[in-house]
């Protein structure tokens, strides 16, 4: 039971990451579309400004939870890094619970705003006239997923997982340095 929940959660985060990645691709395609539509022999008016912006938002929010779980969100680990193990555990419980509370609060208000946009039928100002609640749904959903991820971290620490304070750039560099040639380095 416990294992299947764990597996389901991990699949969920990775799915979020992959969907976020798909929106990066869609955004690229939209912008390429705009470049093509502007060529002299193509007679289409295609405005990617709003669509690519909405893809960006979807990508940024939907990938938050995945980014947390791979340890890429930035934090200052320097000061707590030197604490003894027991103290580190308490600090990590404090960090994850505060972060979960904050993102839960943010999710709640994002949902309210999302609901308002839907109720009032807000449309984007550009030529595409996209109902705003659609892209905003990605924000609500992404923030909820991030809240779940923080709670998940909280319970993992509570159940005894070792605590490490690291940051994304250190993580990247570690990976580049460890990688056998041919490398698979990461950007930051």
């Amino acid at each position: 039971m416990k294992d299947s929940i764990r597996a389901a959660l991990d699949r969920f985060y990775r799915c979020c990451g992959l969907i976020s990645a798909i929106f990066v691709v869609l955004m690229t395609l939209a912008i390429l579309g705009q470049i093509i539509s502007r060529l002299p022999f193509v007679d289409v008016v295609f405005d990617a400004v709003e669509i690519s912006g909405f893809c960006l938002a979807a990508s940024l929010f939907l990938g938050l939870a995945y980014t947390l779980k791979v340890g890429a969100h930035i934090r200052v680990g320097l000061l707590v890094g030197v604490l003894p193990t027991r103290a580190k555990r308490w600090v990590e419980l404090w960090c994850t619970s505060v972060a979960a509370a904050l993102t839960a609060y943010a999710s709640y208000h994002a949902a309210l705003m999302n609901l308002d946009s839907w109720k009032f039928g807000d449309l984007s100002a550009g030529l595409a006239a996209i109902p705003l609640w659609v892209p905003q749904l990605a924000m609500t959903f992404g923030l909820i997923a991030l809240t779940i991820a923080f709670l998940d971290e909280f319970f993992l620490v509570l159940s005894g997982r070792p605590v490490e304070f690291r940051d994304s750039e250190a993580l990247d560099v570690e990976e580049i340095l460890k990688a056998p040639a041919p490398l698979k380095p990461r950007n930051a």
Binding site: G121, D122, L123, S124, A125, A129
Partner: peptide, 10 residues
């Protein structure tokens, strides 16, 4: 100060 032209789609 609300720019009316932004909401022409509505």
């Amino acid at each position: 100060e609300i720019r009316l032209g932004s909401y022409g789609n509505e």
